[in-house]
């Protein structure tokens, strides 16, 4: 059974690939027996079928698969903006039945507010959550500095390139210091060069501010290069084929994509998600 194989990987995988000194892997998000079906014109479509997955604290995990495999649906279920048809999700041990402030989100499009400057855009979640604005501002400035947007605080989104806008969107996702960062194909709208740059910048941020990152992408190389584990998903109905431990050491470099380990991972994932 496919789902049970994914569970097996979760339970048997130790801290082999994680150089986190002495830290034991704690489960951050637990997904049990998750189903999501949608009513459509022609009947019901199963977007997700029997998904079981444990996501560890502070790990970088990627959901990979072709369109229609339910990876974005799974991410949206973790935001609790939609409800599962069956099954449940635990966040930090408690049932996730409404959106949690422990979660930050980054979308494919930056969706910054054009009437706000960069800093004020980043501060939006802090404002809504009613956080201490002095602290939030300091944190926002630090994050902007970290992604190379120091000095751009007062610029408007319309004055920035797509890559810079997406950097600001990442800062916005992190400003309220969530323990989980959900990213829905965050680099898909960017050109290849910017995409690589931003991937490694994301890793630098993640090294600095440890978070559980759930990263949805249809780009297999990107998933391998960034993640600790890759969840390979296949469509119709969307389900998990396998969870793969990435054996590449950290810090990751662009050269690693020419290593035999990378190729082995890439071939395996490609074979998994192509299987129908």
């Amino acid at each position: 059974m496919l789902a049970s194989s994914s569970l097996e990987v979760v339970t048997t995988a130790g801290s082999i690939d994680r150089p986190k000194a002495g830290a034991r892997a704690v489960t951050k998000i637990q997904i049990f027996d998750l189903y999501k079906t949608y009513a459509t014109r022609t009947g019901r479509t199963t977007a997700l079928q029997k998904v079981d997955l444990d996501i560890r604290e502070n790990e970088f995990i990627a959901l990979v698969g072709p369109s229609g495999c339910g990876k974005s649906t799974l991410l949206k279920l973790i935001t609790a903006l939609i409800k599962p048809s069956r099954g449940k999700i635990l966040l930090g041990g408690t049932l996730l039945d409404k959106p949690s402030r422990e979660v930050g989100i980054v979308f494919q499009q930056p969706v910054l507010m054009p009437w706000r400057g960069v800093l004020d855009n980043v501060l939006l979640p802090a404002e809504i959550l009613g956080l201490d604005m002095t602290e939030a501002k300091a944190r926002a400035r630090e994050l902007l500095e970290l992604v190379g947007l120091g000095g751009f605080e007062d610029r408007y989104p319309g004055e920035l390139s797509g890559g810079m806008q997406q950097r600001a969107a990442i800062c916005r996702g992190l400003v309220h210091n969530p323990s989980v960062l959900l990213m829905d194909e965050p680099f898909a709208a960017l050109d290849a060069m910017t995409r690589e740059d931003l991937g490694f910048e994301l890793l630098r941020i993640w090294e600095r501010h440890r978070k559980t990152v759930v990263f949805v992408t249809h780009n297999i190389s990107e998933a391998i290069l960034l993640s600790d584990r890759v969840v390979a998903m296949s469509p119709r109905p969307g389900r998990i084929e396998k969870v793969i431990d990435i054996v590449l050491p950290r810090p990751r470099t662009l050269d690693m994509q020419f290593s035999p380990e990378f190729k082995a991972h890439s071939d395996e994932i490609r074979a998994l998600i192509r299987r129908t």
């Binding site: 609790a80 903006l81 959106p99 989100i105 499009q109 969706v111 979640p125 959550l129």
Partner: peptide, 11 residues
């Protein structure tokens, strides 16, 4: 997407 972000913060 912006609406989703705002809703995710329980605005």
């Amino acid at each position: 997407a912006l609406m989703d972000l705002i809703r995710s913060l329980s605005a």
